[in-house]
Design a protein around this nucleic acid. Structure first.
Lengths: 234, 234
DNA sequence: GTGAATCCTTGATAATTGTCAATCCGGTAA
DNA sequence: TTACCGGATTGACAATTATCAAGGATTCAC
């Protein structure tokens, strides 16, 4: 299913050297001679809200850089429970488990229309053996995954539900000068914060009434960060 | 403080090639010629229960392989809350953030008397540039950290407290054929599972009464895995 | 535009967990 | 031995959150 999504979205192979966001992404440090090693084109493509990038258990052959949009990583437990274990933001790499020849750990679902570049694992391996530049960026990506996981554990999965919601909104608004962020569906918030849909809804509704957040469009809110931070620390 | 701990525990530099658990550790894939690149000795040393391997914010210059024992990684939040974000088991690598020139993210505290090897970051970098063997193992370590983080989020930080406790015990007993595992202090269990000390205590006491677990020595329990698994799925 | 479907909100109630406090237990030191 | 100490356990009660259920609002397709 996601294969069809991807196929229909292919664009022609693009030139990484000219990529507008190259400074942010995995190939940031590569030199001209490094790029000469890339034979298969790095493709970029779009997916729409609700599309699946890959499924839990799929056999991977590529990792992806998110150029724009937002993606959730969903983990399905044995008992049917669903937990969103991470949110991928622009510039992030997703599917790193492919480098260890592991099946994908999660299902990756698009939350906001997204553009990706697809980087075949074979390319990564070639570059990695011949140039140290990529290894540095890869290390930084692993690092980011790890520190994100810490944050999800320490801020988004403990304490009162209202504080978790506040932290989530602040997390989603990071690197966004406009104090605006994506507002997940209440069900998704629940799956991110380990609370129920209803609890998430009650808290969001209260935040709205108290002026901590204001809806600017469906799934987008303006934040009063000061108040939210107070809320987290009270 | 932890520096003193480490110094007093130094043993003479040992030969990685002869290490009894080399198959399990970071240098598993290295060849004879790879080892010839190692000039500074890889030291191994012991720490006792309660000792600190490093503190949150310390400037790192090494990563560590845990040869035996058990270690907790503690994260201190701005508001003073404490969360244990991971438990390090034998064969695991700890302090990987050092490879990205980051300060240590956590405080690493010994739960069961532990022996480590200390691997200077400079060594890793030398090996990494000249041999692909280490990179493979490093990737596998990152991977492990990531999938562990997933497990902590999906199993140990959501659902009913009693289920989290059951999952924690099963997690701690992994790779232990004897169906026996470390039993953390109730306070530590609380910090691992985002519940209170009292709740942890109540549940452990109930598990004991119902025969799910049986204390074999202080901080060590025998598990009835069948019952525990049932408990997780009911 | 209209209906249908979906998501969000809210209420009432039950269950779980947190809080505060007292007691118990095991080990240690005097 | 006895007193003491820290951790573990338990009780009573309060607070938070889940559950079940019903409306309300919004979005989407036709």
């Amino acid at each position: 299913m996601e294969q069809r999504d991807i196929n229909k979205a292919w664009t022609s192979g693009s030139k990484c050297e000219q990529c507008a966001i190259r400074g942010l992404v995995l190939f940031a440090d590569l030199t001209k001679s490094d790029f000469d090693l890339i034979h298969r084109p790095i493709n970029d493509f779009w997916l729409m809200v609700g599309d699946t990038l890959y499924n839990q258990g799929d056999q991977p052959d590529a990792i992806f850089t998110l150029r724009s949009g937002l993606v959730k990583l969903v983990s399905y437990l044995a008992d049917g429970a669903v937990r969103i274990v991470r949110v991928i933001k622009p510039g992030d790499v997703v599917g790193l488990e492919a480098l260890d020849n592991k099946k994908y750990f999660h299902r990756a679902i698009v939350l906001e229309d997204a553009s990706f570049c697809r980087i075949p694992v074979s390319q990564i391996k070639i570059l990695n053996e011949s140039s140290p530049h990529l290894a540095k960026q890869l290390t930084a990506r692993w690092q980011r995954v790890m520190s994100d996981a810490d944050l999800w554990l320490s801020q988004l999965s403990s304490g009162f539900a209202k504080r978790r919601v506040a932290y989530l909104l602040l997390y989603l608004s990071e690197e966004n000068e406009a104090n605006e962020c994506y507002l997940p569906s209440r069900e998704d918030m629940g799956a991110m914060l380990a609370i129920t849909t209803e609890t998430a809804s009650r808290i969001v509704a209260r935040f709205k009434r108290n002026g901590l957040i204001k809806l600017v469009s469906p799934h987008r809110v303006a934040l009063d960060k000061e108040k939210l931070i107070d809320y987290c620390e009270q």
